[in-house]
Amino acid sequence: MNKDKVAVLTDSGGDIPKALLERYGIYQIPLRILYRDREYLDGVNISANTVYAMLPVEIPKTSLPDGAMIQSVFDRIKADGYEKVLVVCISSGLSGTCNVMKILGDAYEGLECFVLDTKNISIGSGFFALRAAQYLEQGMGWEELLQKMPAELPNSRVFFCVKTLEYLQKGGRIGLVAAAFGTALNLKPVISCNADGIYYTVGKALGRMQSIHKIETLAQQTAGDDEVELAIMHGGAPDEAELIRAELRKRIPKGKITVMGQISPALGVHTGPGLLGIGVFKKS
């Protein structure tokens, strides 16, 4: 039941699997991946594995959706009978998508638009689009939704580790993570988003295995004894992701793994192959 005719729109950086987008009727707009001589739409006509394979040859740039694409999505939402749209975006501290969606949403005639800056990345942002769609399905009205969603922003955390900081550095997404982080000692940062939606070092570990154990421990500490939703995301590392799933089932028995899969190609541009991440969403 969606009594106020509210649509939910998110960007592809939220890493919501296609099956869940379809299940909840969530609209998604892809980010863009720009190579010197061609352009791709994130997850539409390029895969993360293709991006990884091309990295030794060229590191592409990423860009927000263009105005014409955003306009066309708003047109489709309106044509489908909706009167309002909640736009859920990855952190404005990491992407300009949030700001351009707000500008174009405010100017669009025929739809009341609210843009939620999740101050988060990947499924840490995507969780909110899923939750909003669930609330609407349960009968929540527009005004209550606009109060509920911003209040839940502290409920979502992501923790991830990468094999190398090279791609975060070259993509300008290093945030507050030290660029020269113990390379000689194989010291690995564990990264999250702070309250401003900027990457920062939430922990550190010696080597790959210890960094994986660290994100598992941080997820466990965040979950506590609560019932939580969990997500396991990876960048071309499905076997290690499966090991994390087995470990989280032991460490967080009240956790429900609702999402597991590969991050979007656009996010893969900035993290490179080998990323492993855990998302924790606490229920309010």
Rank of each mutant, 00 (worst) to 15 (best):
K84E: 09
T271N: 09
G197C: 06
G126W: 05
A79G: 11
P30F: 02
Q169K: 12
Q210P: 04
M101E: 04
V115L: 04
G43F: 05
P150T: 11
G126P: 02
N49C: 10
K18I: 06
V158N: 02
I29G: 03
I198E: 02
A266K: 00
V269D: 01
K256S: 12
F181G: 11
R38Q: 15
Y52M: 08
P30Q: 01
K204F: 10
G203M: 09
P60R: 07
T258A: 15
L21G: 03
Y200G: 02
L206D: 07
L146M: 11
C98H: 01
K170C: 12
N49A: 15
V44E: 09
A151M: 03
G93A: 12
K214L: 05
K18G: 09
M54D: 10
L243D: 09
M149W: 01
G172R: 12
A195K: 15
A53E: 12
R249E: 13
V228P: 09
T222C: 13
V44A: 09
P189A: 11
P253G: 09
G255S: 10
K5Q: 13
F281Y: 14
A205S: 13
L86S: 01
V162M: 12
S12G: 03
V6W: 00
S47W: 02
L185A: 11
E144P: 00
P265T: 03
G139V: 14
A184K: 13
R36V: 14
D15M: 06
E137F: 01
G277F: 04
E143Y: 13
E112Q: 14
D196L: 11
P253W: 02
Y40W: 11
I29E: 06
D117A: 10
F127W: 08
E144R: 14
L218K: 01
N99V: 09
I70A: 08
T118Y: 07
N49Y: 03
S92I: 07
V269H: 04
T183V: 13
M69L: 14
I16E: 00
T217V: 13
G43T: 12
D37I: 02
E112P: 07
L218H: 03
Q138K: 13
C89S: 13
K256M: 13
K282F: 15
T10S: 10
H270A: 07
Q147N: 14
K78V: 11
S47P: 08
A219E: 01
A184S: 12
V57P: 10
L218T: 04
Q221M: 11
L187G: 03
W142D: 07
V280I: 13
F160W: 07
G207F: 06
V280W: 00
E229V: 05
N186P: 10
I252K: 00
L116K: 07
